[in-house]
Structures are given as C-alpha cells and as structure tokens.
Design a binder for these strands. Structure first.
Lengths: 145, 145
DNA sequence: ATCTTGTCTTAGACTTAGTCTAAGCTAGGA
DNA sequence: TCCTAGCTTAGACTAAGTCTAAGACAAGAT
C-alpha cells in the first residue's frame, strides 16, 4: 500500500485507478521523474492512460502539498513525493543525476533581516551542483587524452 | 560603457553590434529577464535582430561564465549579469518578483561529507520563497473579505 | 584593393514540455 | 433508474527553445 495514496485520501481526494497508478509510479522510484517519464512508466501498467491525466494529477498533488515540484535543469519539471521532510538537492552537472541531501543548518536562519526586503520568507531550498563520481572520472580521462 | 561588455571582451570574444545590444539590455535592468523579454527590448534598439542570435548569445555568455542562467519558475530561463559575486535569490510566490540577496554563510559548508555521495561539490545556491509586501497585503485583504 | 576563410546572423522549420478544449465516461446520491 | 458532478480522453494548441541552411561580414594574406 502506497503511503502517498494514504496521504492523498486524507484530503477527500477521489483515488481513481489512474490516480493510484500515477501516485504509485511516483513513489516507487527513488529518483525524481519528469511528467513524461511518469507517463511512460505508468502506461506500462495502464495503457489507455492519457498524457492530460498525468499532468492534471501531478498538478493537483502539488496543489494539495503532498508532492514537490522541482525545476532544476530548466528543461522540464520533476516531481518529488517526499513533500514531508526538509531536504535539498545535489545535481551532477555532467549527467543530470539528482540526489536528495540534508544540510546541517536551515538556510532561512542565514538570511539577515535587512536582506529580506519586507518579504515574509517561508521556506528555502539549496541546490548543490558538482560532478558525480562517474562524471568526475570521465572528465579526468578526457583531460588526459 | 557596459561593464559586462568589458568582461566579455577579455575572453577574446568578438563584440558585434548585436552582442553589444544584448549585453547592454541584460545589464541595464535590475530584474532578471527571460530570453524573450531581452529580445523584445533589444529589438527596440535593433529591429532586425533575430531570436536565434539572442538565444545563441545568451548561451555563449553563460558558457563563458559571465552570466548566470536561472531556472526558478519552471516556465522559462532568466539571465543574471552578476555572475561575479556570490548571491542567492528571493522569490515572491504571489507575483513572481525576484530579488538578489546575500546570506551570512556559504551553504557548501553545511553539507556533511557523508551527504555528498562521492560528488565533488563546487557550488550551491539558495532559493528563498515567500510573499513580497504587496502580495502579503493582498492576501490579508483577501482573507478578510 | 581583393580574396579567402572562418565566424556571425538570419528566417523559419522543428522539437519539447505543457495546457486547453470538447466530448464521453463513471460513480454516487435523489 | 436517472442526474449530476467530477474524471478521463484524444488531439489541437501554445510557449520556450534549438537547429539548419544560406547569406553577410570581418580580419588577415596576397
């Protein structure tokens, strides 16, 4: 039983077969998929599922606050079913691999009052960038050659 | 004289009239424009300027490291001519207004070694989100009504 | 001064990601 | 059972960005 489905049901949200497949696809993986990748995988389980339903459903889950929408590469949005606990993201600039990470401090505490420009700041997320072990090796070999 | 143009020239980059107009448009404003907005404004000064040249030029300036590419709203990329000094971004969730801000510490220092998954982490940026003074007022009035 | 070569720019076709629309389907209440 | 509201569908549409092929231009060689 999917935990995300349980959380969604609490919002009096109708769990249709389509929505269940989408939620389970989203939660079943530990990388963050794009809408298109979710469609691709969900269609394996429910071939008549439409693109519009996937997009609608993802947007609704984001609106309910149970899924996070990430826009980190400027190409397409990615969806993160862990809307629960505070975490940040580490991205490989070589291959786009993305990991969830936890920082030792809350960045909101590090924004001085005079840098807030009168905003009420509610949350902050950190995007770390670098090279994953594989891309680092590849880069080193490339430099040698 | 544009400072960005000076920086670009240091890379032995040919400063054509088109590139100059684009660089000056980018630097002349203190908000972060999308490529389409830059095109729109640059065309006022050089009507025959093409969309492809704007996109090419922006991508080249990013590759040279003199301009930052921001993907914060998931719709379109925005360009920030201040690639120089470390800064982060504060975004209004109501109207999309974006400000540059400075934090009191470098977030790279807050990522413990065992959370780095073997990556070489080179940089980190923080996205702060909240409501700007105007949207906060509007929200309060909306709640009253 | 002209030629040559490589770079830059252009218009427009194309691609990708996502939204919208109109019609049909389905589940649950009167 | 019928009604209604909400859900799903196919496919058209839009927005952002990339690609391509051809022409324009600039700088060095002759």
């Amino acid at each position: 039983m999917s935990d995300l489905v349980t959380r969604l049901r609490r919002h009096n949200w109708r769990i249709t077969p389509q929505r269940r497949v989408i939620a389970e696809t989203l939660e079943g993986s530990h990388v963050h998929f794009t809408a298109e990748q979710i469609l691709e995988r969900a269609v394996e389980r429910m071939p008549e599922l439409s693109r519009a339903t996937v997009y609608n459903t993802l947007n609704e889950m984001v609106a309910l606050g149970e899924v996070l929408e990430l826009t980190l590469d400027g190409r397409s949005k990615r969806y993160d079913p862990n809307a629960d606990h505070e975490h940040h993201h580490l991205i490989c600039e070589g291959c786009g691999l993305m990991k969830d990470v936890h920082a030792m401090a809350d960045p909101v505490d590090w924004l001085p009052g005079d840098e807030r420009h009168g905003f009420s700041v509610t949350r902050a997320s950190i995007t770390y960038r670098g090279l994953c072990p594989e891309c680092r090796t590849a880069a080193a070999e490339g430099a040698q050659a």
